[in-house]
């Protein structure tokens, strides 16, 4: 009897043991993964960081040709009151020639108000061009000093290492002179 058991063990016991080992290993791996996840996920933005603030921007004090920077989610948001010439310049560009093909009309809700996140899509610096005295790059918009990305008057990438246009956040006009970002 015992010889019989020993025999059957060495015949199919091999595969049974493999099966046990593999399932135990697989469960162990899944368990370790489940255990690790809360620790990894705890590094993601916490609830208070996520409690996504919205900001309201009063547009009345911004003269044509001027721009202001507001803080939203810890990042700068550019609000620019564009001149007719700047809008003209942005509209004249052929969309097929762009690296990140977007027409100016798709990037604004009202032609004269350009609102976008002021974070270079290369590695995250804040481009220059908000102040009158800032360099504005070869295309009259913004220039990122970190690695030399040039953005046009629609905030679209035209030259340099950045792959994408400056992103447009979600926003809505509450009234003609009040904008809610976020």
């Amino acid at each position: 009897m015992s010889a019989h058991i020993a025999n059957s063990d060495s015949e199919d016991g091999q595969t049974r043991r493999d099966f046990l080992l593999l399932t135990a290993g697989a469960f162990g791996a899944v368990g370790a993964g489940c255990f690790a996840w809360p620790f990894i996920d705890s590094l993601n933005p916490a609830a208070d960081t996520l409690a996504m603030s919205t900001v309201e921007v009063d547009l009345t004090p911004i003269q044509e040709g001027q721009a202001i920077t507001v803080k939203w989610r810890g990042k700068p948001v550019f609000v620019r009151h564009r001149t007719a010439a700047e809008i003209e310049q942005a509209r004249a560009v052929k969309v097929e020639e762009l690296r990140d093909r977007e027409s100016d009309a798709d990037r604004v809700k009202k032609d004269q108000w350009l609102i976008m996140v002021g974070v270079c899509t290369h590695l995250g610096c804040v481009p220059l061009g908000q102040k009158e005295t800032d360099p504005k790059g070869d295309f009259g918009g913004w220039f990122c000093p970190c690695h030399g990305s040039h953005y046009d008057t629609s905030g679209r990438i035209r030259k340099g290492p950045a792959p994408k246009n400056l992103s447009v956040p979600e926003y809505s006009f509450i009234s003609d002179t009040l904008v809610k970002v976020g």
Partner: peptide, 22 residues
Amino acid sequence: GFFTAIPVVGDMIQTLLLGGFS
């Protein structure tokens, strides 16, 4: 920002590393 160069999941990785959006 280097990590945002990774296609698809790059931004998620950066957010995870920073614990926020900046």
